[in-house]
Design a protein around this nucleic acid. Sequence first.
DNA 1: CGTCTCCAGGTTTTT
DNA 2: CCTGGAGACG
Length: 697
Amino acid sequence: MPADLSELQNELNPEQFKAVTQINGAFLIIAGAGSGKTRVITFRIAHMLNSGVPQSAILALTFTNKAAREMEERIKELTGKKLPLLTVSTFHAFGVRILRQDISKLGYRENFSIYDETDRNALIKETGRELRYSPEAMDIYKIGILISDIKTGRKRWNSENEMYKQLYEGYQEGLKLYNAVDFDDLITLPIKLFREHPDVLQSYKNRYKYIMVDEFQDTSHQQYEFMKLLAENNVAVVGDDDQSIYSWRGADYENIINFEKDFKDVQEIRLEQNYRSTGTILAAANGVIKHNTNRKDKELWSGNGEGKPIEIYMPENEATEADFIIETIQSICVTDKRKYDDFCVLMRANTQSRAIEEAFLSQNIPYTMSGGTSFFQRKEIKDIISYLRVISNHDDDVNLLRIINTPRRGIGRATIEKLNEIAKNLGCSLWDAINALLDVGDDEADLFMEGQAGSAPSKYDDFSDESFSEGTKQSLKAFVELIEGNKSMLGGHGLAKKVRKMVEDIRYFDYLIAENPKSEKAARFKYLNIESLIGSIERWENNPESGEPTLYNYLNRITLLSRDDMDDEEDQGKVNLMTIHASKGLEFPVVFIAGTEEGLIPHGRAVDEGGEAAVEEERRLFYVAITRARDKLLISSCKNRRHMQSTVECQPSRFLDEIPPNLVEYHEREKEVDADTALAFLQQMKKKFQAPIVPGF
DNA sequence: CGTCTCCAGGTTTTT
DNA sequence: CCTGGAGACG
């Protein structure tokens, strides 16, 4: 980056220059797709550093880990400095940092667990059962959303939902008892901390004098509150209302309007020149987005040439769609000398990936799938992580329940029920209940279950004459010893090694084989995932930038990660496959949008639940998809698609009609035979050309 | 009391 | 296809 301003001025357009060099005051930077936003943010930070702002005074908040990592890397590249004190982080990760520091002030202990959605739902289910909610009333999925909405202030109690108030309170008590926080808490608890402890807030305010928020249109109300507490008046928020695609998660682009009210003398800077896409692609994007009524009016323009037409295909079903994508990739590789990583296939929903991935696999085309079911959501990974969580926080009931009998060790439902009773009566975690039981004889265990002295035992009569068999107690004891035997993981080095040893000790591979009797391959695959987890732990602990490689630090980190945050292998030379949501902020020379059908985009469920507002959000999603493309855009809409068991007929998405027709070439699908012949031919070509095409050769 | 087997249902997007 | 739950069995 050029150090002197006049040179900088040459590299940037006037608006960009202003956004980069004006650092004092409040700025609302409206940055259209492809307008060099990332460049502006990174230059801006570099410029601050050059102007003598200390790195520790800068806080840049992003939406995804990927964005944070990329931004940090680019700033380091630009400045050639190490910048260990610069804070570039997601809101959630920053929240974790704050809580790690001061959560004890809120009555939690420092080894708190972070619950993801699965954990949260398990706790809701458990709480609901304890409170005797009827099974019909327990739509966990919906209740989870309700709880999140209430917690973040998106909804209030009303006559319709107040029956869950008790459940909500029980859930909160459970979290506290287990020393756990959920994702929403990662924002709400820091806010609470700041409000109740002004001195803590002040210490952060003293440090962070310059705050920047990327993807501002996707911040939630809570996140905005959080930022507002922290910020004095040197704030720059960067966003684009047309790319707001997370309202379902509480994103509220009203924040853009509030920002102009809440901060003094807000200056608005608009970046409307697109440097990314061809004129054709941009015109298509503009044509689509202008159908939205609720938006800041703007039109992107581009100095790039007109470019190639957009192609729309109508394949028979998702299998032929996948074939079409692959054929096209192969042929563009040859004609335009493209590499595999120049391509990106976008989907609305993760479920679409299966057919496409299968085709890539069978054709031996390297690809990376980002987003998708998070690596850390996989059952086998969650199992191992649960062990680590319990080792780090014994009171974490949700994770303890997950592993207490996985692999099988003879602790079944009845035992767990009884332990639950003890825990409830003692007001303690399951771990403490187990230890209380093991510490005393059977007789006293009965006492636990009858309730404390004086309380009416009637409710627990069922249990009063039952006791724990010697075998069960042995199993429990073995479990306790296993967990305690691994406490060396908490400190010291060689975490990866210790984890590997534990996985062997619990004979997890045998368990996988037993659980997947039909397919040893599946068991192997799962085991490989665990190996890959251990590999990532190893890399993490050997990475000097990770900070102290303690188990806590590791656990705090990974709950917030998705799969592509972990993969360390090079994605170079691979076709990119991802959801549209995951593609935000990225760009590719050639983009496919697969499954552009009514019901998928706009998504049927979204329309059902959100009506016209949801259609507008889906349209923004489609807009985001289009604007990822630099050079060439291809869209496909299947005539049929397998949905669950049956095949359903599909209509092309209404958004296709919104693309100005003069930009588009429509293709009807040729006959199957032709396609097969073409594919065979392309296979031949591929073999011939493989050497020069595949990067790295 | 724990485990195994079979069956139904299904969750759009992500920190 | 995969997960989780219910019920039968040992």
